[in-house]
């Protein structure tokens, strides 16, 4: 009877491994307006966000600069206390039981390092070994695996401050995984990486998620990270969740329009045609959006007849454009 109940609550908590209910974070910012005088104002970094992530899912968490992504992740690790709402990770309230949760989560902040600058990489791992009280065999096994897959072998004896950005990032990802975290928060883990390193890191994360069903929340400005890793994506803007669904859904939203890029002979005012609207002008180049269902031919013919056309191309909506349009719409509405 009891076990049955346990199993039930277990599976419920698995379905809502991460759960946010109207979570808010308000920063009180003071601006100096003069000698000894300052003005206070509020920044709503996270504004009533709710979502759940089941165990084992890999979710993309994207949005423009200052949207509130890092703030959300900080609350999920417990280092920031929400100003409002309810937040649970593995049933734990992060800010209340930060240390207990710490053993079950892994974090990579791409812009910071968990490694110790003045120590060889391997020494940082040894400290992690003690800090997370990882059983020796487990530690060896995880370290060997990370060293192999992230190609850290030649770097182990190098002091961290001498590592390149990409090397350090791989080192950081390994550091976050030595203690077998159930959930991994990645805040821009591919920032500054070259193409080859990115591919390596992505492959590694995909395997990790597949083999160990580690839950992953991934923040990035590189949408190909999301395209290759996440089926589900959440878009946040100005602290609000503006989209939560499959990546393909995002395509559909944006599939409404295609873009015609035209090069004119010289700089001209925005082209005036009723079949399309100009979305951007850059010198003699202009971008026009038109319904995806329409043929481009009549539009091109009209422009060619009325304007000194030099060159043109038609662009299908890509996810990047879709998202920047979503951001733009949000900003103007």
């Amino acid at each position: 009877m009891d076990t049955e109940l346990d199993a039930e609550t277990d599976s419920a908590s698995d379905r809502e491994f991460i759960r946010l209910d109207r979570v808010e974070k308000v920063f009180d910012v003071r601006k100096k307006t003069g000698f000894l005088r300052s003005e206070r104002h509020e920044v709503r970094a996270v504004d009533s966000i709710s979502f759940t992530v089941p165990r084992g899912e890999m979710v993309g968490y994207i949005g423009p600069n200052g949207a509130g992504k890092s703030t959300t992740i900080k609350m999920l690790t417990g280092i920031l206390t929400p100003s409002g709402g309810r937040l649970r990770v593995a049933g734990i309230d992060p800010s209340r039981e930060r240390t207990r949760l710490a053993r079950r989560i892994g974090v990579v902040f791409g812009q910071r390092t968990t490694l110790w600058w003045d120590l060889p990489l391997i020494d940082s791992y040894r400290l992690m070994h003690r800090m997370y009280r990882i059983p020796d065999a487990r530690y060896r096994e995880n370290l060997d695996r990370c060293v192999e897959l992230l190609e850290l072998g030649p770097l182990l004896d190098v002091p961290v401050r001498q590592l390149s950005l990409g090397q350090r990032m791989r080192g950081d990802i390994a550091a976050a995984l030595l203690h077998d975290p159930e959930v991994l928060y990645l805040d821009e883990p591919t920032i500054g990486l070259d193409v080859i390193s990115k591919v390596k890191v992505r492959e590694f994360l995909r395997d990790l998620n597949a083999e160990r069903s580690t839950t992953v929340l991934l923040t990035t400005h590189d949408l190909s990270d999301i395209e290759q890793l996440c089926r589900r994506v959440m878009v946040i803007d100005h602290g609000r969740l503006v989209y939560d669904g499959p990546l393909s859904g995002l395509h559909e939203i944006g599939a409404g329009e295609r873009t015609l890029v035209v090069d004119l002979e010289r700089e001209l005012p925005p082209i005036d045609v009723d079949l399309a609207r100009v979305v951007k002008v850059e010198g003699p180049r202009q971008w026009l959006a038109f319904p995806a269902s329409d043929s481009a031919a009549p539009l091109v013919a009209r422009i060619a007849a009325e304007y000194p056309l030099v060159d043109l191309s038609v662009r299908e909506p890509d996810i990047e454009a879709v998202i920047s349009r979503m951001y733009a719409e949000k900003a103007t509405s």
Binding site: T77, G78, I79, R98, T99, R100, F109, R112, T113, M131
Partner: peptide, 13 residues
């Protein structure tokens, strides 16, 4: 610099 964030999510005092 905010690097304290990293010290805070570690399971160490």
């Amino acid at each position: 610099t905010g690097d304290i964030a990293i010290d805070l999510y570690r399971p160490a005092d």
